[in-house]
């Protein structure tokens, strides 16, 4: 069931006049001074933020912690990239209404589907930068199931599972194979054994396999 209909988002005002989201009775930030709370929170990550200009934040809240992270990054780096992962639609909607970011170095991904997330080339390219991961605890605890499945995610290996993500030509080519509910290495083995080389895309897959093997050997060296 979509949390757009099931979740209620309550907005309270902190002692110093800032909006604080509350979901299922849980305050996502300090009701006294969310900005100061965020400052103290980010101090724990000073070294991390100094060393790495790519940061993945688990939990949006109303972004006070993100403000501080951004501030710290801009002190240490000319360029940086922040990606925020937030599964709760209502929180995202509320944030946009009350406190939208203006910085283009911050991207918010609002999704509940971990599998879809890992199909995004943009997301993959960000992860390949080996970002530091910072957990916003109240957000994490609110959607623990989602964040845990994200952190434990392993890509499925059988070709059929990612078939739709393949280029058109690859999809067309792979329909020629009897069994694609196997890893790509097994498909390639079919070319090398019973099936044989039948067309030029078979050579392409064999080239891909040779490349993968070659890269692995060079890494070990």
């Amino acid at each position: 069931m979509d949390d757009r209909t099931t979740t209620t988002l309550e907005i309270k005002t902190s002692r110093n006049g800032l909006p604080v989201p509350v979901v299922k009775g849980i305050h996502l930030h300090s009701i006294y001074n969310p900005a100061k709370e965020a400052e103290a929170f980010v101090q724990n990550y000073e070294k991390t933020l100094k060393e790495n200009n790519h940061v993945l934040i688990l939990g949006l809240g109303f972004g006070y912690h993100i403000d501080q992270i951004e501030k710290s990054l801009s002190e240490h780096h000319e360029h940086f990239n922040i990606l925020v992962l937030e599964p709760n639609y209502k929180i995202h909607e509320g944030f946009r209404r009350y406190r939208a970011f203006k910085n283009s170095s911050i991207t918010i991904i609002n999704t509940k589907d971990v599998n879809e997330l890992f199909k995004s080339e943009q997301f993959i390219n960000f992860l390949r930068q080996k970002p530091s991961i910072i957990k916003h605890d109240p957000s994490f605890n609110l959607d623990k199931k989602f964040y845990t499945s994200f952190l434990k995610y392993k890509a499925p290996t059988n070709v059929q599972s990612y078939f739709e993500s393949l280029n058109d030509i690859l999809q067309m080519y792979l329909t020629d194979f009897e069994n694609t509910e196997v890893p790509i290495s097994n498909v390639i083995d079919q070319i090398k054994t019973d099936r044989g080389i039948r067309n030029r895309f078979d050579y392409g897959l064999l080239a891909f396999e040779a490349l993968s093997k070659n890269i692995k050997e060079v890494s070990h060296e």
Binding site: F118, L166, N167, L170
Partner: peptide, 13 residues
């Protein structure tokens, strides 16, 4: 283990 082989295959082809 995070990334599906589809990215590598797509990139190569």
């Amino acid at each position: 283990e995070l990334y599906s082989d589809s990215f590598a295959l797509n990139s190569f082809f």
